[in-house]
C-alpha cells in the first residue's frame, strides 16, 4: 500500500459515495432521468461536467493529447447506452448497487466482465479496432 494506493482508495470511495447519494444506483431514478421525467440527476451529471471543466480551466489548463474518433466510438457507445438503459448498470453502478444490498447486481457485473473479456478476443480476431490512447 503506497501513497498512490491510498489516494486512489479515498477518491474511489468518495466517487462511489457520490454515485450512491445522487441516486444512480436506483433504477427508478435512472429511468426517470433518461425519460426526462426528473431532471435532478441529469443536472447533477451535466453540472459535474461543468464544474470539472471550470476546475481544469483554473487548476490544470494544459490540454491532454487529442484522441481521434476511431471507428469503435459510435457503435460502442450505442451498445453501452442500450445496456445501461435496460440493466441500470455502467461499469461503476453495479458496485454501488451491491454496496446498497442489491445482490442481483453481481449478475450485472458478471455480464460486464464477460463482455469486456469477449470484446478483447473479438477485437483481436475480427474487428481490429485500435482505440489508441483512448482507453479510459
Amino acid at each position: 500500500m503506497t501513497a498512490l494506493h491510498a489516494k486512489v482508495a479515498v477518491l474511489g470511495a468518495l466517487f462511489g459515495f457520490t454515485v450512491s447519494m445522487v441516486g444512480f444506483a436506483d433504477f427508478g431514478e435512472l429511468n426517470a432521468m433518461f425519460t426526462f421525467q426528473d431532471t435532478r440527476m441529469l443536472l447533477a451529471f451535466a453540472g459535474g461536467v461543468a464544474v470539472a471543466a471550470l476546475g481544469f480551466l483554473l487548476l490544470d489548463p494544459k490540454r491532454p493529447t487529442r484522441t481521434r474518433i476511431h471507428k469503435g466510438v459510435v457503435p460502442g457507445a450505442v451498445l453501452f447506452g442500450a445496456g445501461w438503459a435496460v440493466s441500470g448498470g455502467c461499469p461503476a453502478i453495479p458496485l454501488v448497487q451491491l454496496g446498497a444490498g442489491y445482490l442481483p447486481a453481481i449478475v450485472t457485473l458478471a455480464g460486464v466482465a464477460s463482455g469486456m473479456v469477449a470484446y478483447r478476443h473479438l477485437n483481436a480476431r475480427y474487428l481490429h479496432i485500435d482505440a489508441g490512447s483512448c482507453s479510459i
Partner: peptide, 9 residues
Amino acid sequence: GGVLVGIGT
C-alpha cells in the same frame, strides 16, 4: 445488459 455495457464501453 451487462454484456452490452462491457463490449460497448
